[in-house]
Amino acid sequence: MNRTLEDFAHAVGPEGPVTVVGGRTRWEVGGPLQPGVREVRAPSGVVTHEPSEMTVRAGAGTTVADLHAVLGAVGQTTILPEQAGSTIGGVLAVGHSGIERLGWGPVRDAVLEVRLVNADGELVKGGGPTVKNVSGYDLPRLFVGSLGLLGLLGEVVLRTRPLPRCRRWYHAPGARPASLRAALYRPLSLLWDGTDCWVQLEGHPDDVEAQVATAGAVLVPVPGPPPLPPQRWSIDPASVEAALTGPPEGEVCVAEYGVGVLHRHQAPPPVVPDPAVGRLHQRLRAAFDPTGRFSPGRSVLP
């Protein structure tokens, strides 16, 4: 599937209910679609990669794994999380960051430019291709996490970053996450299940060793993070301790400490937005998709 943006816009067209499909790895987010919605796929493949600019332009239908394979060949990567089959467009539309968010920041910060198809079937550009840009409104950020309800992503420019020289996971049985957070300089990840911590560090090998030596807890090298339950809660990071103190009987819950993501088996409660925010959402939907043709049935708010 290597179509052009114009082909993609043509496939979306100006009318009829339509949705864009990526790897279907997070297809349930936002609720089920109404029946009879036409499915389209975004172009795939890396369009241009300028290693010395540390940016990459790629079709939204490109899998993150394929993107990272191309970038990895020259020692670069992106902060987009990799999950079997997931596409750039899907990851951005859902907007969930990976477990490196504590160190690398949220995925929304990686997007420099978007090319999308609007509800009239026309191509729209937002943002720009350089690493720094404040020309006009920040459409790229509006589209990250929008579940394709305002327009369908066809192509994006992403910021890349150097692959770390060394990147290691450690298990810290019984360690206090607050102490580890205070002792470590900008860890990539700090996970806590209420009892144990897991830490991911990156950088110069000497620095990683030095951090391990001064962490104030025993850090045991491990191949990777613990298994993460499938549901995802977003809470104030200040509430993580309370959330994991006296957890539900027998439920495994892993927190991204310092970030506020909880990985649990239980689904998160619906969030009721402030009425003013709810009205803003309605006006945005009406402005970008007046007939409600994009992914009918799905919603970013309850």
Partner: peptide, 19 residues
């Protein structure tokens, strides 16, 4: 008067803070 964004990592809805 309202709050856009939030201290939690993924506030529900569109990224009004980013806009």
């Amino acid at each position: 008067v309202t709050v856009l964004g939030g201290l939690d990592p993924d506030p529900a809805g569109f990224d009004l803070r980013g806009s």
